[in-house]
Amino acid sequence: MTTPFGFASSAADVAAGIDLTGRRAVVTGGSSGIGVETARALAVTGAEVTLAVRDTAAGERVAKDIAAATGNRRVHVGRLDLTDPASVAAFAAAWQGPLHVLVNNAGVMACPEQYTELGWEMQFATNHLGHFALANGLHRALAADGSARIVVVSTTGHQSSPVDFDDVNFAFRAYDPWLAYGQSKTANVLFAVEATRRWREDGITANALMPGAIYTNLQRHTGGRGSGKVPAELIKTVEQGAATSVLLATSPLLEGIGARYFVDCNETETETETVDRRTGNLHGVARYALDPANAQRLWSLSENLLATGG
């Protein structure tokens, strides 16, 4: 599907004219990067917004700023550590009433090899497993709305690796930060595919997206600004980087639409082979990331990991 928006559109552009008064949204990682601008744009629409963050002090500062800038006082902060199942469970248990929009935005990129206390590789745990547990914990609240949306921030980096179902935690293969990142971002897309299949009857749809190349704290392990890996003309502002997330969260065009992958505010093409990164092409979604069988297998694997803690 296509929309009137594109590469240069900002979060404010796509949210213009949208009224979400009386509706509620959660944005993980809402205290930095595109999470801030996603939350700000949702607040402008009149939605009640909760920033789900590890650093609640930083979250409170952002919430105060958003409230002052938008006039929307219904901006809240909740503590959430995606690498800690107990923290995720506590956040979900504390939620009262319906939830209309869940934006799975928080993430880490290409970090040095590290593991959670349960032995899960950090990028897979943060980018996928934590969000998987959160969405499942909030399923009843999402279903209560009748037309809830889950927005999943993935990236073109998913084309670096499918999910290695036999070794998601790099127990048998040498750790590679980019393969681990790519695997976790593929998992994000597969989650959107299977969540839509499982929960569509509850009125819940999920879509994944590539926000674009934006310089934020996410790049702290990769050299950040000036690394030269993306042509300068393809670099977005933070406001532009949040646009696709906000579009999927708010646009009437997405009503009932799920299990798709968007770039620059439009559904992108499916790739059957690796895109040459030297061309600067950030579009495309790998065929394996949309495969229903892979999506079902990942869901089962994720349930098992969370159930056994290993």
Rank of each mutant, 00 (worst) to 15 (best):
L247N: 01
T250Y: 02
G226P: 03
T270Q: 08
P292G: 06
R225C: 05
G223P: 09
P292S: 06
T244V: 00
A243G: 01
V238E: 06
S245K: 02
T270A: 04
P292A: 09
I257W: 12
L254G: 12
I257A: 10
V246M: 02
L253Q: 08
F262G: 10
A259M: 12
A249I: 02
Y261A: 10
E255F: 00
C265Q: 04
G224K: 00
E269N: 11
E269I: 14
R260Q: 14
V285Y: 08
C265K: 06
H221G: 13
A242F: 10
L290Q: 04
K236F: 01
V246W: 07
H283C: 11
V275Q: 03
L247Q: 08
E267Y: 12
T274N: 01
L282V: 10
E269M: 11
S245A: 11
I257V: 15
T272F: 13
E255Y: 02
H221W: 15
A249W: 00
G241K: 00
Y261N: 03
E267L: 07
S245Q: 11
C265F: 11
L282W: 12
E273C: 02
L282Y: 12
E233C: 05
A232W: 10
G258F: 08
G228H: 10
T250H: 01
A232V: 15
Q240R: 01
P252D: 09
R260W: 05
P231W: 07
G256Y: 10
R225T: 02
E269C: 08
G224Y: 07
C265Y: 09
V263S: 10
L247S: 05
T250E: 04
V285H: 06
T268L: 12
G226F: 01
G256C: 08
E271T: 15
A243T: 01
T279Q: 07
L254K: 04
K229H: 13
Y261I: 05
A286G: 07
G228D: 05
L254P: 12
S251M: 06
K229I: 07
E239P: 03
A249Y: 10
A232N: 13
H221M: 14
K229A: 14
A259V: 10
Q219E: 15
K236W: 01
E233I: 09
N281A: 12
S227L: 04
T244A: 04
A242C: 01
E233L: 13
G223H: 11
E255K: 09
G280F: 08
Q219V: 14
G258M: 09
L254W: 14
A289Q: 08
T268S: 13
R277I: 11
Q240V: 04
T237R: 01
